[in-house]
Amino acid sequence: MDWMYWTPPTALFFVAIAMILAGMTVWEVVSPTGMRRGFLPLQTTRGDRLFIGLLTSAWFHLAWLGLSDFHPAYMTVACIGWLIVVLRWG
């Protein structure tokens, strides 16, 4: 595993992603989702909304890094909020 050049922040990142996926799977088994329409312009299931949330979060981070000089952690906090909003009302 040494050649993978692990660092604590990236390890944390992947653990977080894995836990989100595991959590979503459990949630899905406990209470299955259906298609529904929120503020996003298309019908989505819970899994779709998670994907949209994560992908847009990645893009928000890139925009943050490209356009501002602030630390990315501010954006990460904002994106967690965004993820919750998309999952709940998207």
Partner: peptide
């Protein structure tokens, strides 16, 4: 995963790398 790890480091050679 490995590429993500590379992307936050400056890899000089197999043993020298900085975050």
């Amino acid at each position: 995963m490995t590429v993500v790890n590379y992307s936050v480091q400056d890899v000089l050679d197999a043993n020298t790398r900085f975050f």
